[in-house]
Computed example of a mutant assay.
Amino acid sequence: MDSCCEKKSDELATLKSAQAKVLYIVLAINAVMFIFEFSSGWLVRSTALLGDSLDMFGDASVYALTLFVLHRSNRARAKAAAVKGGVMLLFGVAVIVDATYKTITGVMPEATWMGGVALLALLANAVCFLLLRRHRSDDLNMRSTWMCSRNDLIANSSVIGAAVLVAATDSFWPDVIVGFAIACLFIYSAWQVLTEARLAWLNSLQIRT
């Protein structure tokens, strides 16, 4: 029995170590891409790029938070997942506000740079997605982290499509529409994460009692 428990403990320690290595890598990728994409989005006046860059910042914060609770209790993990859901919800609302502002002002983004930056972001997020995919079933926090990465790929592809349409139609509307679509995606995902976090929190209370 002792040998079995010791083996299980070693396996768990190895798993957590592997999770930490992956999270440090995706944290670095997202932090660098946030700086680059936010600066680019501001310069080319793209709502979708700014929204995507803020998501990069949110993801970097999420990964840092996940690393913080990696070796902590299930109750702490539930709290972290709730915070992550709140971050996703916050950025979804932020994108809606920015898209509304651009609709009123009618600012035109620079389509070529917009598409190029979005393509680079897509490649960066594809790397993160592949790194996180093998850990998506480990626990709640790794699953919610993988969900963030999955959403990033969809958002990046949408921004590229918007850039093509902006160039083809000479209109700011594709950029604005994608901004609203990204916001809806993150708000929906935030609801999923918050729901799972609530269930995990209730389960941790039952186990404790």
Rank of each mutant, 00 (worst) to 15 (best):
F57V: 11
Q192V: 07
V44R: 03
V83K: 00
K8L: 10
A76N: 10
G51Q: 06
E37Q: 15
V164I: 14
L27N: 13
R143W: 06
Y63Q: 04
G106Q: 03
V164M: 11
S9G: 06
Y188L: 07
A121W: 01
G86L: 02
T105A: 14
K84D: 07
A162D: 01
W191E: 01
A126Y: 13
F129E: 09
V107R: 07
N125C: 07
L153R: 04
G85S: 05
A76T: 10
K8Y: 00
G85K: 05
V176G: 03
L130Y: 10
S53G: 07
I187K: 00
V107F: 10
L54Y: 09
D98K: 15
V26E: 01
K84T: 13
P109G: 03
S137T: 15
S171F: 04
K7I: 13
Q19I: 15
R133W: 09
L89H: 09
S3C: 08
R208T: 13
D55A: 06
L15A: 13
A197Y: 00
A64L: 14
K7T: 15
L185A: 06
A20V: 15
A94V: 05
E110R: 10
V62E: 14
F129S: 09
F172S: 03
R150P: 04
T47G: 07
C5V: 14
R133C: 12
E6N: 13
C5R: 14
I187N: 00
R143H: 11
N125L: 10
G86I: 08
